[in-house]
Amino acid sequence: MKWFVTLKTKFKDRFFKSNLKESLVNLEKGKELYSTSRFQEAIVHLDNVVNYEFDSTAYELRASCFQKLDHHYKAIEDFDKVIEFNPLEFSYYYHRAVSKKAIFDFTGQIEDLHNCIHYYKKNKNIEIGLLKTFETDLITAGNHIEKLKHNISSFHNNSYLEIKTLLSDCLYQIKKIKLRANKIRTPFRQIKKEELSSIINPET
């Protein structure tokens, strides 16, 4: 009986390694097809990966494919899984917000942008251009909410006032991050100028 258990274990290991190798091949093929904008074909290979195991990269890539093909509900489902796996990455919230905007879920878009900003402000290297993108998206979403407020009393179980408060907080946070980023850059430039001045005029 022992020989049978050993044989069964070896077969399982071989089967697992074979599937893992096939999964990696499919992932690489999915990446390659995505890079050449063959999104529908890429999804076929990425499906093979996620059907075998949970792979955050495969879900993220497949979500991007769905987004490119305007399958936004499917993209949101995949980004949900990616965020569950890594909830601290700001870019995932932003990408999901893009799909929520596409399906006119402006409340969800604002909520995702709020989380995006929350995690982005912890970055050491802040890009002002990216903050402006967040700001523009928030203002656009706010304008849509304003147009809808006369037709419906609540937005996905959130009151109009709650959404406006969240929107205001987002814009306030962006302003704070910009100020902090400018303060970090300004002293650095002043020090460099002073050092340069002392090198040019060592007697002063």
Rank of each mutant, 00 (worst) to 15 (best):
K2N: 13
W3H: 08
V5K: 15
L7Y: 08
T9K: 14
K10R: 12
K10D: 08
F11S: 10
K12W: 12
K12T: 08
K12H: 10
D13F: 09
F15S: 12
F15N: 13
S18W: 07
K21W: 04
V25F: 13
V25K: 12
V25W: 08
G30L: 10
S35C: 05
T36A: 04
S37P: 02
F39D: 04
Q40H: 10
V44C: 04
V44L: 06
H45E: 09
H45R: 06
D47P: 00
D47T: 10
V50W: 06
N51S: 08
Y52W: 11
E53K: 14
F54S: 07
F54V: 06
T57P: 01
Y59G: 06
E60P: 01
E60S: 11
A63Q: 04
C65V: 03
K68E: 12
K68V: 03
H71G: 02
H71S: 06
H71M: 11
Y73R: 12
K74C: 08
A75P: 01
D78C: 04
D78Y: 05
F79T: 05
F79Y: 15
K81N: 02
F85A: 15
F85H: 14
L88K: 14
Y93V: 04
H95E: 13
A102S: 14
I103A: 02
I103N: 03
D105S: 07
T107I: 07
Q109N: 11
I110C: 06
N115D: 07
N115M: 13
C116L: 04
I117Y: 02
H118C: 01
Y119I: 00
Y120M: 05
K122G: 00
K122P: 01
K122H: 03
N123I: 03
K124D: 01
K124A: 02
I128S: 07
L130H: 10
L130K: 15
T133Q: 13
I139H: 05
T140A: 11
A141P: 07
H144Y: 14
K149N: 05
H150F: 12
I152G: 01
S154T: 13
F155G: 01
F155E: 06
H156D: 10
H156N: 15
S159F: 05
S159V: 05
Y160G: 01
L161I: 12
E162V: 07
S168P: 01
Q173L: 04
K175N: 07
K176L: 02
I177Q: 03
R185Q: 14
R185N: 10
T186D: 03
P187R: 12
P187S: 14
Q190R: 11
K192E: 14
K193S: 10
K193R: 14
E194A: 10
E195I: 12
L196C: 09
S197N: 05
S198V: 04
I199L: 15
I199G: 06
I199A: 15
I199Q: 15
I200V: 13
T204G: 00
